Computed example of a mutant assay.
Amino acid sequence: MGSDRTATQESTTRARTRRAILDAAVARLSADHAASLADVAEAAGVGRTTVHRYFRERSDLLAAIGTDVRERVEAATARARLDDGPAPEALDRLCLEYFELGDRLMLLDDVPQFWAWSGLDEEEETPSDRALLALVRRGQQDGTLDPDVDSTWLQNVLWALLYAAWEQTREQNTPQHTALSLCLRTLRKATAA
């Protein structure tokens, strides 16, 4: 019984340490794309050998960040409940969820080589992409979203507006709630039937 509890505690501690390293890596690499594993270790408050225990090479860390971002996007999409209620409200919920992932998504966008390092395909359609496109088509069919605009175009508009909101907070020091309000307001106008 005691060994099960010890194993569970060790597993929880490892997961927390790994999460701290990933979070620190996102913060550090967002500020300095050339940050080393030693820089990440310092930001995470762990030793360099601890980072190397979890991620042997920088490419391993980048791959883990890429996987983490994909998982977070999928979880955010699920939390947005895209099948519930009118399409514009579901689109707002999705935008709110994605907005919280700004640092991670901006990092992927800011470092052109990231996709190659992480082993992910930037152009690959994900389950979240398919869910968003299905939501747009549903809204177009029921008349709550503009039926004359291509669904892929509206998907790209959503991402462009999110990027603009993230940039507004980063470059103009606009409060996040203000940038998000501007993003949602513009999205609603762009998608209105």
Rank of each mutant, 00 (worst) to 15 (best):
P127W: 03
P127K: 02
S128H: 12
S128Q: 06
D129Y: 02
D129N: 03
R130Y: 09
R130T: 06
A131N: 02
A131W: 04
A131E: 15
L132D: 00
L133Q: 01
L133H: 11
L133F: 00
A134K: 00
A134G: 13
A134D: 01
L135C: 07
L135H: 07
L135A: 06
L135T: 12
V136N: 00
V136G: 00
V136A: 06
V136Q: 06
R137C: 02
R137P: 00
R137Q: 00
R137N: 01
R137G: 01
R138I: 02
G139S: 10
Q140M: 07
Q140E: 09
Q141I: 05
D142E: 07
D142N: 07
D142A: 00
D142Q: 09
D142W: 03
D142Y: 10
T144V: 05
T144R: 10
T144E: 02
T144M: 03
T144P: 12
T144C: 13
T144A: 08
L145C: 12
L145Y: 12
L145N: 10
L145H: 12
L145R: 10
D146A: 13
D146K: 06
D146W: 04
D146F: 08
D146I: 01
D146T: 14
P147W: 09
P147A: 06
P147S: 14
P147H: 10
P147E: 11
D148K: 02
V149S: 06
V149M: 10
V149H: 11
D150L: 14
D150R: 05
D150K: 11
D150F: 08
S151M: 01
S151G: 13
T152R: 09
T152F: 06
T152A: 11
W153T: 13
W153Y: 14
W153P: 05
L154K: 01
L154P: 02
L154V: 03
Q155C: 03
Q155I: 00
N156L: 05
N156W: 13
N156S: 09
V157E: 04
V157G: 12
V157L: 09
V157S: 11
L158W: 08
L158T: 14
W159F: 06
W159Y: 13
W159M: 09
W159A: 05
W159L: 11
W159G: 07
W159Q: 09
A160Y: 06
L161R: 01
L162S: 00
L162G: 08
Y163M: 10
Y163C: 13
A164C: 07
A164W: 12
A165T: 14
A165G: 15
A165Q: 05
A165D: 09
W166C: 01
W166N: 07
E167C: 15
Q168E: 13
Q168Y: 14
T169I: 12
T169S: 13
T169H: 03
R170G: 02
E171P: 08
Q172K: 14
Q172N: 12
Q172S: 14
N173Q: 15
T174H: 14
T174S: 13
T174G: 11
T174V: 12
